[in-house]
Design a protein around this nucleic acid. Structure first.
Lengths: 348, 348
DNA sequence: AGCAGTCTGTCAACCGGTTGCCAACTATTG
DNA sequence: CAATAGTTGGCAACCGGTTGACAGACTGCT
């Protein structure tokens, strides 16, 4: 190769969008420290592989040049990117705010950067986003995914994946354990004299909505309440308003909704219709989202520790990246009833 | 090189965390299509550089192999990463939810990925996060930055930066133009018989809080109201509760707060103290955050189109990445008064 | 047919780190 | 003092795309 043509000389372009001075590389450090670039690389990433003396010299040089690794150059040969991806079904939905926050916080505490995408509730968009991300992140968190189990398993076979708010056999999951919270809610309602309860369901394809309904049924069985299930058109404030007439028609005096948004809409509409909450109807929401205590009366709700879910999921993921196996079954985080003003004794 | 030692043979490790099959490269495509890798590269990224025929062959081969570019490999020589960074002061704060959403949406519409970080309201953390990000993204959006102008200018000299919610000479900014909304608010209050107005300020270092106070003063001058400024301890619901006694003491019958959170807390506390809103005191918030209409009465507020800010900022950034210059002055988006139940005629 | 001008594909260098292998050097021990 | 074991640093290949330079093919024109 020494005697090769070398005709081209290929002067590479300056690049660097602006501010011409490109950042220092390990080659610069090597020159300054009088060692080989590979030694610099080792000193900076493999503690103990080089002698303390050389280590010091190199670190000083790096300091002096204000060196920062180029993450892309590092990612190329190793595949490690120091980023984790998070895909949420709907950025608009406050449920996910806490999840995002939790994931970002524990991620950045361990020097990982969070990459965010949303699927707009569409299984297809979700899959596309997931695939696109998978090549650029070390691991992926799916919050309330909409695609089918099998697709998620395929993704999980490729890189570490953690799912929030859904249980999938063979994939690490973090799910709020709804039973405790629901049980508290139903007991509290029963104690307040309620006998007829309505559950306002969420999207039909939602795993979590089914789960909550099962929980409600079980608890109502136990506490001897009658439970009916009503279908909302969409899991939003507006959907809550629309379901109000069905709720009244059902004759139930207590309502548990799939989420807080539905509860808030429902309460607004009932109040507008002159129904008093909680004297005539008690309302219990789900999740304890931001703003659940802004209402009058403030919303009683089953709190899902969403922030903790995000943070636990990120923690799990990072552990898996360290080579540990994912947990056996799903990780369950406790839910609990937060009693506020929207539920109480029935005043006939 | 042919006669070289070749002793090493350097068998590179398999890598790929799991699922051994690594993804196809342009070399695989080249082999399949019977052309040179560089031709593949050109076909895939430089439309028109290769003949239509070859183009077709290569595209088919890529399709068949289910090829995806390796973003790191591409980023290394070019510096382009197809990602934009967003740093917010506080992920907890709902003000930023819409900004995040706006930025994510327009970003991903143009095939850019959003990378998110938060500064926890600390100028130092912010700077560190910004620096760390800057090396891995094509451009950066700073929402309500807390560090000083000069530092931001330095960052902006390196890569395109857009600032939201603050004006900095020489850096592209997107700011809500508060005057219109404030003017509407004060006019409405004046029309309802109010003569004494209090402004509850936000964090002292907040550029936006000062701006809003100036706007309030100007509008009060014009509409002949008296305005006093009160200092909140923190811009949260809790801070709003704490300021209630000062508000009452001030004798003002109308209040405009630095943000909705303060307004909500203030209203809760006043109502708890038996003060009727809006009959005795009118309250106007700022931003129209998620949940501002959950309260009873629903909150009257000056809406800042936060989602639009995020989306405009991302748009601006992407344009700058295309080589266009940033806008001359700051981009202003209109604010407007949203009248709901918390403001109205004074009933003495 | 001869020749300039245009297209198109190939070659090879390069981005900036990482790492397997080896050789030189140092320290330990018989 | 020599032989052996353990360290440490250097060499060079490699990750996967990008791009300037260039040569061969092809076109059109005289």
């Amino acid at each position: 190769m020494t005697e090769a043509t070398n005709s081209g000389a290929a002067t590479f372009p300056a690049k660097r969008g602006r501010g011409e001075r490109s950042s220092p590389t390990i080659y610069d450090i090597a020159k300054l420290a009088g060692v080989n670039p590979s030694t610099v690389s080792r000193a900076l990433s493999k503690p103990g592989r080089v002698s303390a003396k050389t280590q010091k010299i190199i670190e000083d040089a790096a300091e002096q040049l204000n060196y920062q690794v180029n993450p892309f150059a590092r990612a190329l040969p190793t595949g490690r990117t120091q980023t984790i991806g998070l895909i949420v079904a709907d950025i608009t939905n406050p449920t996910f705010f806490d999840i995002i926050r939790g994931a970002e916080t524990t991620g950045s505490a361990r020097d990982y950067t969070l990459v965010l995408a949303e699927s707009a509730e569409s299984p297809e968009t979700e899959l596309i986003a997931a695939r696109r991300m998978l090549s650029t992140v070390d691991g992926l968190i799916l919050a309330s995914p909409r695609m089918d189990d099998e697709k998620i398993r395929v993704l999980a076979a490729d890189k570490p994946v953690v799912v929030i708010n859904r249980e999938i056999e063979g994939v690490p999951c973090v799910v709020p354990d709804v039973n405790k919270g629901i049980s508290q809610a139903v007991r509290s309602l029963a104690a307040n004299g309620h006998q007829q309860l309505a559950y306002v369901a969420g999207p039909p394809q939602s795993w979590m909505s089914r789960r909550r309904w099962e929980g409600v049924q079980a608890a109502c069985d136990w506490y001897k309440l009658e439970a009916v299930r009503l279908e909302s058109s969409k899991p939003t404030v507006d959907g809550g308003r629309q379901i109000a007439r069905d709720v009244l028609a059902s004759g139930a005096t207590a309502v548990i909704t799939y989420n807080d948004l539905l509860a808030i809409g429902l309460m607004q509409e009932l109040q507008a219709a002159g129904v008093h909450v909680p004297d005539q109807i008690s309302i219990v929401g789900f999740d304890d989202i931001f703003g659940a205590d802004f209402t009058t009366p403030a919303l009683t709700t089953v709190r899902s520790p969403l922030g903790e879910c995000g943070s636990r999921a990120a923690g799990l993921l990072l552990d898996m990246l360290l080579g540990n196996d994912g947990p056996e079954g799903a990780v369950r985080v406790d839910t609990e009833l937060v009693v506020r003003g929207s539920s109480g004794r029935l005043i006939a």
